[in-house]
Amino acid sequence: MEKMNDQARQSPMQKAISRVSYAFGAFGNDVFYGALSTYFIMFVTTHLFNTGDKAQNDRMIMYITAIITILRVVELIIDPFIGNWIDRTKTRFGQFKPWVVIGGTITSIMLLLLFTDLGGLNQSHPYLYLVVFAILYIIMDIFMPLKTLHFGQ
């Protein structure tokens, strides 16, 4: 009932800004997901490990795939704790807005870093690259659900 009263008190301009903001947020989320689900595997298989040693390249791609699979399972375990953490949030900006901003910012930075070779680390120290990749990916995976929260809940 309180949510309905808040919406009724909004001016037409505030409603328009809210709708446009939501639309841009949804578009950004879809672009992020598209980049991660489609182009990331293409980046890994065609650009990241392209040393000329096919056996080494295949092994590194296998390790990246295994890391992503394992971290997705770990994410299933972590997500309920993140949800509980969010449910307990009480700020002057609301329950979800701070987490949307934090989640969107951190996941964007992590995605940008994941689409690099980390300064040539993949060629010079490939196993160190895998460790750094795993750390960056789990950070992105932890903060990714935060950016998809709904303002109106």
Rank of each mutant, 00 (worst) to 15 (best):
T107H: 08
G25F: 02
D79Q: 10
E75A: 14
I135G: 05
K147R: 11
G83S: 14
Q153R: 13
I142Q: 00
I139E: 02
Y22W: 06
Q56K: 10
R88M: 10
V73W: 10
K90N: 14
T51M: 03
I135D: 04
L149W: 00
I61V: 15
M144Q: 05
S108K: 02
D79C: 10
M13I: 13
V73P: 01
M62R: 03
V31I: 15
D30W: 14
V44E: 04
Y137I: 07
I138A: 03
I77W: 13
D141F: 04
D141E: 11
G120Y: 03
A26Y: 08
F81S: 15
T105L: 13
T116S: 05
N29S: 12
F24A: 08
F96G: 01
F32H: 13
P98K: 00
R19W: 06
M144S: 12
I61G: 03
P126R: 09
I135K: 00
K15N: 07
G28R: 06
G25K: 00
H150I: 12
D141Y: 06
Y127H: 11
V131P: 05
P80W: 13
T46A: 05
K15D: 08
D30M: 15
T51W: 07
K90E: 12
V101F: 03
V131M: 06
D58K: 04
W85Y: 14
I142L: 02
Q7I: 05
F32A: 09
A55G: 02
F40S: 01
K90M: 06
A8N: 04
L128P: 04
T45R: 04
L136I: 12
V131A: 15
M144W: 07
H150C: 12
Q153K: 12
P98C: 01
I77Q: 04
D30Q: 14
I78F: 01
Y22A: 14
L36P: 02
V131E: 05
D30C: 15
A16S: 09
R92S: 10
I142T: 07
A16Y: 09
K15G: 06
M110L: 11
M13H: 07
N50I: 02
G83M: 09
H47W: 15
V132M: 03
L146V: 11
L121C: 07
I64D: 02
W85G: 12
V132K: 00
Q10R: 11
N84Q: 13
